[in-house]
């Protein structure tokens, strides 16, 4: 049976490749080192597939169709944004496992939308560029949650989707070793009033809740509270909550945190403590 061997929470800030030299050098080093550390740990875990949980930014999905949750079960490439300074290229999927996750969800009440051919945006492309491409042979299953365009996916549902992903992987007859990345956050205001603000105190509160495995507390944070304290970009902790669903009862170890004004974001990294 396939196994989930690790989980990580990380930012997907496009500024990392748009303006890599704009920030304080010491903070910059911390952040790029954190991605390198994740890459090394995923290598050591001998993982062969990563499920990257991100959210579209009203980019791929426009006013004509906003999926609540979507999984890519076929061809993947990216990034879709030309300004990321990342050359668009193919991203190898694990289509068989992705399809099994979808089918399992259908059996369990998760009505996935799906993409047969997806060009990912930065929410998958940045983690891919910094912590997937760096691990030879690692295949990518992109998952998109609607954490951006209201009416939003509920945080409890995000967690349930993660639980279903976990059950699907553990029931897959293949021998895959899977890691899960929850991406985005923490506080940042994306195009909205307040853009440029970072709320370090709120970020620390969020990290503390993840580190204790306080999922009910995180789900209990209303979208209004998150918007007020962490900005519209902070709603991406739904992606993190989803990732935690694949690790019932788990806590996390915070790896790093930096508030980076030049990149307009409070950026946190954590590793899931695997429950035996």
């Amino acid at each position: 049976m396939a196994e989930i061997v690790g989980g990580f929470l990380m930012p997907h800030n496009p500024m990392l490749t748009v303006a890599p030299n704009a920030a304080d050098p010491s903070k910059t080093r911390t952040i790029f080192d954190a991605f390198a550390t994740i890459s090394e740990r995923v290598k050591a875990l001998r993982a062969d597939t990563v499920i990257v949980i991100g959210d579209d930014h009203y980019t791929n999905f426009g006013p004509h169709c906003i999926p609540a949750c979507l999984i890519a079960i076929g061809d993947v490439d990216g990034p879709v944004e030309p300004f990321l300074n990342i050359e668009r290229g193919a991203i190898e999927n694990n289509a068989a496992l992705a399809t099994h996750i979808l089918e399992t969800g259908y059996e369990q009440g998760i009505d996935w939308s799906f993409a047969k051919s997806l060009t990912v945006d930065h929410s998958v492309a940045i983690p891919y560029h910094l912590a997937v491409r760096t691990v030879p042979g690692l295949k990518t299953i992109p998952v998109y949650l609607n954490a951006a365009v209201a009416p939003l996916l509920r945080s409890r549902r995000a967690y349930q989707i993660g639980e279903s992903i976990g059950r699907a992987v553990r029931s897959w007859p293949g021998d895959e070793r899977v890691v899960v990345y929850g991406t985005g956050g923490i506080s940042h205001w994306v195009g909205s009033v307040g853009m440029g603000r970072i709320n370090e105190a709120f970020d620390q509160q969020v990290l503390e809740m993840f580190s204790k495995g306080d999922i009910e507390g995180l789900i209990g944070l209303s979208d209004e509270t998150i918007l007020a304290e962490g900005g519209d970009g902070c709603l991406e902790i739904k992606n993190w909550i989803c990732a935690m669903g694949a690790f019932p009862g788990a806590t996390v170890e915070v790896m790093d945190y930096e508030a980076v004004p030049e990149w307009i974001t409070g950026m946190g990294f954590a590793q899931v403590n695997m429950v035996a």
Binding site: A148, S192, D232
Partner: peptide, 8 residues
């Protein structure tokens, strides 16, 4: 109006 699409 959604700020992300406006900024993009």
């Amino acid at each position: 109006v959604h700020p992300m699409v406006l900024m993009m």
